[in-house]
Design a protein around this nucleic acid. Structure first.
Length: 303
RNA sequence: GGGGGGAUACCAGAGCGGUCAAAUGGGGCAGACUGUAAAUCUGUUGGCUAAGCCUUCGGAGGUUCGAAUCCUCCUCCCCCCA
C-alpha cells in the first residue's frame, strides 16, 4: 500500500448535474475522502446559494475545502493549488484514491497541471488599477499595458478588463513583463490523475437547474442573501444566486424576476463549465446515474 | 356610439419610399480564459446547393422603376370621450 500508485480522481461537470451524490457514493465505495474544487463552496457564509453538501452528506464522507474560508478572506487559485497538494500528500498516506469534485475548471487545472508562480500583488496596487479602469476605461488599461508588455497585449483579449488588470498587476509587482513570466508549463505530479466528466442531455440538466433554484428559494436563499447584504461588494458574492437577489432586495426587480434570472444565469454558467471541460479530451464522460459504470472504470484503471 | 394609437425576426423594440435580411437590447447557440474564475470577455443568431439566390416586417389588394415604410379594405390589440 505504501508504495502503490496514487490516484487523484477528478469528478467534474456542470453545476446541478449531480456531482455531489456521485462523489459520495464513489468515496464510500473506495473508502476515501472528498476534496472540493468549487470556488464558491469554500466560503462558510454562503450555504444555500452554493448548493453545498448538507450535514448528512458531510457525515457520510469526510469533505475538505467546504466552508474553510470566509468571504472576507483573500484567496486565489494558487492558494488552492498549494493547499490541495499539501492535503493530498496527507490523504495519500491512507488512501490510494482520493476524489476531487467540483465545477471550477481553473482550480481543477491548477491542481492537475499547476500554475505559474507569481508574487501576490499589494492590495493598494490592485485597488489603484481598478480605480484607473473605473475612471478612465478599458482604453487606458490597454495604453498602460502597451508600455509595460506589448507582447502580452498583442495576444490577450483586449476588451477583457480582468485580463489586463492582472497583467498590469504582475508587471508592476515583479518589474518584469507578464508575458515573460507566464511559462504555462505543465508540472509533473507524483500521483496519477483520472478525469471523470459528468453530464446529462441539455433539457434534463436545465430542468435540474430550475428545480434546484426553486429549492434554494424554499430553503431560504432570500434570508441568506439578506444577511450578506452589507458585504455585497466582496468578490465572493459576485455570484449567481446572490447578485440577482441583491437586485430584488434593491427593489430593482421582483422576486419572481430574480428567480428567473438565477435560472438563466445558472444555465449559462453550466454552459461555460462544459465549454471549459470539453476543451480537452482528458475527460471520460458519464451520466450521474452510471455510478456502477464509473466504479468499474475506476477499478480497471486504478491498479 | 365617437376620436386616437398600434400590429416588425424567439422576445422587447428602432426603422417610416431605395444604402433593410431589417438598428439596439434580451434570450438562444458557439467560443476564449494562468490568479478573488458561479468571475470576465468574444463571436453568431431567417433559409439555402451560400462572395449568389430565395422567403420575411398582422392579412388581402393597390400605387411606384422600387414598399417594413404610401393608399384601400379586413382581422386583432391598446387608449380617450360617451
Amino acid at each position: 500500500m505504501i508504495n502503490s500508485t496514487k490516484y487523484l480522481v477528478v469528478i467534474a461537470g456542470p453545476t446541478a448535474v449531480g456531482k455531489t451524490d456521485v462523489a459520495i457514493q464513489l468515496a464510500k465505495t473506495f473508502s476515501s475522502e472528498i476534496l472540493s474544487a468549487d470556488s464558491r463552496q469554500f466560503y462558510h457564509e454562503m450555504y444555500i446559494g452554493t448548493a453545498k453538501p448538507d450535514q448528512q452528506q458531510l457525515d457520510e464522507v469526510k469533505h475538505h475545502f467546504i466552508g474553510h474560508l470566509s468571504i472576507h478572506d483573500y484567496y486565489n487559485v494558487s492558494n488552492f493549488e498549494n493547499e490541495t497538494l499539501l492535503l493530498l500528500k496527507n490523504l495519500f498516506q491512507q488512501n490510494n484514491i482520493v476524489f476531487m469534485v467540483g465545477g471550477s475548471g481553473l482550480y481543477i487545472d491548477a491542481v492537475c497541471r499547476g500554475i505559474d508562480d507569481f508574487p501576490d500583488p499589494k492590495p493598494e496596487l490592485r485597488s489603484y488599477l481598478k480605480g484607473v479602469y473605473k475612471d478612465e476605461g478599458i482604453v487606458k488599461l490597454q495604453e498602460m499595458l502597451l508600455q509595460l508588455d506589448p507582447e502580452y497585449l498583442a495576444t490577450v483579449d483586449v476588451n477583457n478588463p480582468n485580463r489586463l488588470l492582472r497583467a498590469l498587476e504582475v508587471c508592476h509587482t515583479t518589474g518584469k513583463k507578464f508575458s515573460e513570466q507566464r511559462l504555462n508549463n505543465s508540472k509533473t505530479r507524483d500521483f496519477e490523475i483520472i478525469k471523470i466528466g459528468l453530464n446529462l442531455p441539455r433539457p434534463e440538466l436545465f430542468s435540474r437547474i430550475e428545480f434546484r433554484v426553486d429549492q434554494m428559494i424554499e430553503k431560504g436563499l432570500v434570508d441568506e442573501v439578506k444577511n450578506l447584504l452589507p458585504f455585497r461588494h466582496l468578490n465572493a458574492l459576485n455570484t449567481v444566486g446572490y447578485k440577482e437577489i441583491f437586485d430584488f432586495l434593491d427593489s430593482k426587480i421582483t422576486l419572481e424576476q430574480a428567480i428567473t434570472n438565477i435560472k438563466t444565469n445558472t444555465r449559462r454558467y453550466a454552459k461555460r463549465q462544459l465549454t471549459w471541460f470539453k476543451r480537452t479530451d482528458e475527460f471520460t464522460w458519464f451520466e450521474p446515474s452510471q455510478v456502477n459504470e464509473i466504479t468499474n472504470y475506476l477499478t480497471v484503471n486504478c491498479k
